[in-house]
């Protein structure tokens, strides 16, 4: 069965409204893109949308109560909320070095969660 999905291209201020048509997961057509970048973006958003996750985790004994953390690479979009929820249970001990791995291989994605600043 054919299905359409709508996306807004984020690659330039034109913000093209993209319409992707697929059948059983196979992309048939992308309409509305002003350029090839938009075509590619719609496919990625349909086939494997990924996002960088950033949040905070609690710190014991630090100069601040929270440590900002970020995924070292984008992870599947569908896992973002679960990743943040998982990290919300975590408490790390100060001091923390910039880039220190805080949670390796989050949700089996192969992507590490790292400290996004040093915290003495």
């Amino acid at each position: 069965m054919k299905k359409t999905h709508n996306y807004t291209c984020i690659n330039c201020p034109l913000s093209c409204a993209l319409e992707l048509t697929e059948e059983n997961g196979e992309v048939l057509e992308v309409k509305g893109a002003d350029c090839k970048v938009g075509q590619k973006y719609a496919r990625e958003e349909f086939e494997n949308p990924r996002r960088v996750v950033s949040t905070t985790v609690r710190v014991e004994g630090g100069a601040l109560p929270l440590l900002p953390v970020v995924s070292a690479a984008p992870i599947p979009k569908a896992l973002v909320r679960d990743a943040v929820r998982m990290l919300s249970k975590l408490t790390v001990n100060a001091p923390v070095a910039d880039g220190q791995v805080i949670y390796p291989d989050i949700l089996g994605t192969g992507v590490d969660i790292i400290a996004s600043r040093p915290l003495p």
């Binding site: 960088v52 950033s54 996004s116």
Partner: peptide
């Protein structure tokens, strides 16, 4: 704490911190 900084100066996407 979100990402999106530095794409011009460092040619890399960084968080604010």
């Amino acid at each position: 704490i979100h990402d999106g900084f530095g794409s011009i100066v460092f040619d890399q996407v960084l968080t604010g911190p």
